[in-house]
Design a protein around this nucleic acid. Structure first.
Length: 680
DNA sequence: TTACCTCGAGCTCA
DNA sequence: CTCGAGGTAA
C-alpha cells in the first residue's frame, strides 16, 4: 500500500509535538513541576494524534500516542529476570543502623564510608529492559527470580521513556518503582467517587491495581509514575561503566530515566542519620508516598567486597520510618483452632485505618502473650502495622480499662468441639485434644489436603469445606473422593455446573505424586520439603508406612522431633484407615525405587564444622560430607563423631575438647574421604 | 493480614 | 449484580 508522502512542515510539527509532550511528561513526573495544564497537554496530544492519523507514516512506535496499543491480554506471561531482583534488609532503630555502618566499616577496613542515599518509594518494584535503547520488556518483581510480563501496561506509564537517547548501553535493565503520585491518587478517587465506583484505599494499592489490569487502556487512565534506583543485567558496550551508585544514577538521569531528585551522598553514620531526619521532615510535602530511606555503599568496588547474605545485599539497607500506631478498642477476644489443634487468641478490633489499610483483627499469638500485654475485652489498645505487614497489638492504654474487666483465660474446652484443651509443659501453645473429631481441625485439615501444593483440588475453598463438614458429608479427606455431583448440588451456590466442576477437579487430583500425598496428610512438622525428602528416600508409601525409628532417622534432615511426629501419626489406626480409603478411592501416583541408602565412607557419622577451612567453604565441606553419607550438625554433642576445625574456630572446638570428640582439620577430612576412616 | 484484580457461575429481577 | 475462589503484592 502506497503511503501519502509527508510534507516536511508536517513532519517537523509532529517531531516538535513529540519532543514537547515528552518534555511535559518529564516535567510532571520527574521534576514535579508541570509547565502546562492537563487540558493544554491534551490539546497537544490530540493534535499529534490527528497528524498521525492523516499521515500514518508518522506514527512510529515510540510516539507518545502509541503508548496504549494492542488489546487486552488474558493473562500475564512469566518472565525470568536476567539478574534476580533481591530484597533489602530493614532497620527500624538507630541501633540497627549503627550496627549496619559498623559491619560495613569493619568488612571494608575503613574509617568512614560514603553512602548513596535516597527515599524509599512505597510502590511496586519493576524491571525495565532496554535493548539498543528501546524499551522492550517490563516485568513485576514476583518472587525475585520470575515475575510477570506487564510490558503493555508499563508502556502507558508516561514517566517511562520508550526510547533512550543515543549513546545508551546496548542492553540496560533498569530497576525501579512504579507508584502513583499523591495528587493523581486524589484525582483518581475523586473521579471514582463521582462515578459511584469503589474508592482506592491508598496510592500503593491503586498503583498495584492499575498495573494488574489486563486492559492497558485502564492502566493508562490511572496515571502511574516511575522512579529508577538501580540496574540489573547490563551490557555497557562503549559506555564507561560507572564506579559509584551516584554516578549510576547520574547516568540514568542523563538517559532521561526518572531518578529521585531527593537523592544525595552522605558520609558516616552522622550523614545517614541526618538524611533520615531531613527526609522524615519532608515526608508529607513529597509528591509521593515513601516508607523510609535507602542507603547504599556508594563505591561499587566496595559493594562487591561486601557481597550478599542469602537474599539481600550486605551493602544496602532500608531504614524504615516507624510504623503508624493508633488506638482502637478490643471488641472481643476470639479463640481460633488451627489445623494442628493449636488455639490462637485473636483480638477483634473496632476497625482502624492504620498504615494504609483497615485493621479489624490482630493475632495475640498465645495465652502467655495475652497475659504479658494484659489485653482484656473492652480495653483501648495501640495497634501498629509493622514492617512485616502483620498488624499487632502494641500495648494497652491502662486508663481505658473498664472496672471488673476479667483477665483473659484460654477456655479449658475447645470452643469448636468441646474437647479438652491440653498444654504440654515447656510449650507455649495450647492444643485441642479432639484431633479430627474437632470440626475446626477437620476443616483445616481438609483445606490443607485440597490446597494447591498438596492435592490441588481446584474449587474446594473454605466456604465449600465449611458446608461439606457442617452437612456431615465429609469427615475425613477420604470422603472427598466419595462425593458425587448430586450431593454437591444440594449445597448453597452449588448448582449443576459448579458441582460438575468440583467433581472434575476432585477426579483430576486422584493422579498425584507420593510427595504431594505425604504433604497432604498434614503430619505435624512435615512440610513440603520434608514430604519430598521422605518420598524420595522411601520411594513407596508402604515403605514409609512400615518405617521404624531407625529407618526414619536415616532420612536426610529428619531429626528426633520429626521422627516422633511421624511415628505418632502412623501409630494412629484412624490415620492408616484414611490412607487405605484414599487409595481405595482411586488416589494414585507412580512409585519409585527407594533411594539407595548412601553407603559412603561416612555413613552413620555426624560432623560439626567450625571456623574457616583453608580451601573448602562451609557449604562445600557440608556437601562433601553428605556426598559420602555423613551428616552435618550445627552443634557439638556426645553423638558427634568428629569436629572439623579451621581457622578462628568457635566455642564448638572447646565443647569438642570437653566431650572428647576427635577434631580434624581440612586435610585430615580429605584424607578420610580418600582412604577411609582414620584409625585412632 | 489486607487489598486489589480476574474469572466463572449463581442469584435476582425485569 | 454478587459471591467464592484463586492469584499477586507489600
Amino acid at each position: 500500500m502506497a503511503t501519502t508522502p509527508v510534507p516536511a512542515k508536517i513532519a517537523q510539527r509532529a517531531a516538535k509535538l513529540r519532543t514537547d509532550l515528552d518534555a511535559h511528561n518529564y516535567r510532571y513526573y520527574v521534576e514535579d513541576a508541570p509547565a502546562v495544564s492537563d487540558a493544554e497537554y491534551d490539546t497537544l496530544f490530540r493534535e499529534l494524534q490527528a497528524l498521525e492519523r492523516d499521515y500514518p507514516a508518522l506514527a512510529t512506535p515510540d510516539s507518545p500516542t502509541q503508548r496504549v496499543g494492542g488489546q487486552a491480554a488474558t493473562e500475564f506471561d512469566p518472565v525470568t529476570h536476567r539478574a534476580p531482583m533481591l530484597s533489602l534488609n530493614n532497620a527500624f532503630t538507630n541501633e540497627e543502623l549503627e550496627a549496619f555502618d559498623r559491619r560495613v566499616r569493619t568488612a571494608l577496613a575503613l574509617e568512614e564510608v560514603d553512602y548513596a542515599v535516597e527515599p524509599k518509594f512505597d510502590g511496586l518494584a519493576v524491571s525495565l529492559v532496554y535493548k539498543q535503547g528501546k524499551f522492550t520488556l517490563g516485568a513485576t518483581r514476583g518472587d525475585g527470580y520470575t515475575g510477570e510480563n506487564v510490558t503493555a501496561n508499563l508502556r502507558t506509564v508516561r514517566a517511562i521513556p520508550m526510547r533512550l537517547p543515543a549513546g545508551a548501553p546496548p542492553l540496560l535493565e533498569v530497576r525501579g518503582e512504579v507508584l502513583m503520585l499523591k495528587r493523581d491518587f486524589a484525582a483518581l478517587n475523586a473521579t471514582q467517587e463521582a462515578a459511584g465506583d469503589k474508592l482506592f484505599v491508598n496510592p500503593r494499592n491503586a498503583a498495584a491495581g492499575a498495573l494488574r489490569q489486563l486492559d492497558p487502556t485502564i492502566t493508562a487512565s490511572r496515571r502511574l509514575a516511575f522512579f529508577s534506583y538501580g540496574v540489573g543485567a547490563v551490557d555497557w558496550g562503549k559506555v564507561k561503566p560507572p564506579a559509584t551508585q551516584e554516578a549510576l544514577l547520574d547516568l540514568l538521569s542523563a538517559l532521561r530515566l526518572p531518578v529521585a531528585s531527593q537523592r544525595s551522598v552522605v558520609r558516616r553514620l552522622e550523614g545517614l542519620l541526618g538524611y533520615y531526619r531531613a527526609i522524615g521532615d519532608k515526608r508529607d510535602s513529597l509528591p509521593f508516598q515513601i516508607d523510609g530511606v535507602v542507603y547504599k555503599v556508594n563505591q561499587f568496588a566496595h559493594q562487591e567486597r561486601l557481597g550478599f547474605v542469602s537474599r539481600a545485599p550486605r551493602f544496602a539497607l532500608a531504614h524504615k520510618f516507624p510504623a503508624e500506631e493508633l488506638p482502637t478498642q478490643v471488641l472481643a477476644i476470639n479463640v481460633q483452632v488451627g489445623r494442628t489443634g493449636a488455639l490462637t487468641p485473636v483480638a477483634q478490633l473496632k476497625p482502624v485505618f492504620v498504615g494504609g489499610v483497615t485493621v479489624v483483627s490482630a493475632t495475640l499469638h498465645n495465652e502467655d502473650e495475652v497475659r504479658r500485654k494484659d489485653v482484656r475485652v473492652g480495653d483501648t489498645v495501640i495497634v501498629r502495622r509493622a514492617g512485616d505487614v502483620i498488624p499487632e497489638v502494641v500495648r494497652v492504654l491502662p486508663e481505658s480499662r473498664q472496672k471488673n474487666a476479667p483477665q483473659f483465660v484460654l477456655p479449658k474446652r475447645c470452643p469448636e468441639c468441646g474437647s479438652k484443651v491440653v498444654r504440654l509443659p515447656d510449650e507455649v501453645i495450647a492444643r485441642c485434644s479432639g484431633g479430627l473429631v474437632c470440626p475446626a481441625q477437620r476443616k483445616q485439615a481438609l483445606l490443607h489436603f485440597a490446597s494447591r501444593r498438596a492435592m490441588d483440588i481446584e474449587g474446594l475453598g473454605d466456604k465449600l469445606v465449611d458446608q461439606l463438614v457442617d452437612a456431615g458429608l465429609v469427615h475425613t479427606p477420604a470422603d472427598v473422593y466419595k462425593l458425587d455431583a448430586g450431593a454437591l448440588a444440594a449445597l448453597d451456590r452449588m448448582a449443576d455446573k459448579s458441582a460438575a466442576n468440583v467433581v472434575a477437579a476432585i477426579g483430576k487430583s486422584r493422579a498425584t505424586t507420593l510427595s504431594r500425598f505425604i504433604y497432604a496428610l498434614g503430619i505435624r512438622h512435615v512440610g513440603e520439603t520434608t514430604a519430598a525428602d521422605l518420598a524420595k528416600h522411601f520411594g513407596t508409601l508402604d515403605a514409609l508406612l512400615s518405617a521404624d525409628e531407625q529407618a526414619l532417622i536415616e532420612v536426610r534432615d529428619v531429626g528426633p522431633v520429626l521422627v516422633q511426629s511421624i511415628l505418632q501419626f502412623l501409630a494412629e489406626p484412624h490415620n492408616r484407615d484414611v490412607i487405605a480409603q484414599l487409595r481405595a478411592g482411586g488416589v494414585h501416583w507412580t512409585e519409585s525405587a527407594p533411594r539407595q541408602a548412601i553407603r559412603g565412607k561416612f555413613s552413620g557419622l555426624t560432623f560439626v564444622i567450625t571456623g574457616t577451612q583453608p580451601t573448602l567453604s562451609r557449604d562445600d565441606a557440608k556437601a562433601l560430607i553428605e556426598e559420602h553419607g555423613g551428616k552435618v550438625a550445627g552443634s557439638v554433642s556426645k553423638k558427634t563423631s568428629y569436629v572439623v576445625a579451621g581457622a578462628d574456630p568457635g566455642s564448638k572446638l572447646d565443647k569438642a575438647g570437653e566431650l572428647g570428640v576427635p577434631v580434624l582439620d581440612e586435610q585430615q577430612l580429605m584424607a578420610m574421604v580418600a582412604h577411609g576412616r582414620i584409625e585412632r
